[in-house]
């Protein structure tokens, strides 16, 4: 009976685990309280894993440079961009965005860019953080 794994696991016990640690070592009684403490510098969290270069996270929109040409709307696969005729500017719904960054490619003025921000979860899809305009 050959069990090559036994050797492997016995060696592994003495090595450092490969898992990325959770932000807090144990689940705090209240996550918001804990985050407040972290903000105040009273507690520390394990930082998240760094994003790679040229990561495509939450979209950034430079409103002033926009000329309202509508090209981004033509290539957005998710219909996440809406044109506001009154202001001749666009509004981007982050909850619908699929982070393909195609609008960045087509934008003639280069006013759309992707930021490395990725912690976007929320229960309200029309929250302020979920709409870029």
């Amino acid at each position: 009976m050959a069990l090559p794994m036994i050797r492997e696991i016995l060696a592994q016990v003495f090595k450092i685990p490969a898992t990325n640690p959770f932000p807090a070592r144990f689940l705090p009684p209240s996550v918001t309280e804990f985050l407040k403490k972290v903000g105040a510098g009273e507690a520390t969290i394990n930082p998240p894993v760094a994003t790679p270069p040229r990561f495509r996270g939450k979209i950034v929109y430079d409103r002033d440079g926009c000329i309202g040409c509508n090209l981004c709307i033509r290539v957005c696969p998710a219909h996440a961009i809406e044109f506001i005729p009154e202001t001749k500017r666009v509004r981007i719904y982050v909850t619908q965005c699929i982070f393909c960054s195609q609008c960045n490619d087509i934008c003639p003025k280069g006013v759309l860019t992707m930021s490395p921000e990725f912690l976007l979860g929320t229960e309200d899809r029309f929250a302020e953080s979920q709409i870029v305009e």
Binding site: P52, R54, R56, D105
Partner: peptide, 23 residues
């Protein structure tokens, strides 16, 4: 990690474009 390094994202690479690649 290497895929992420090349394309920018882990799963939805968004690398292929009609007529070539984007990065």
């Amino acid at each position: 990690d290497v895929i992420e390094y090349i394309t920018g994202n882990r799963i939805n690479y968004g690398l292929v474009q009609v007529g070539g690649v984007r990065r």
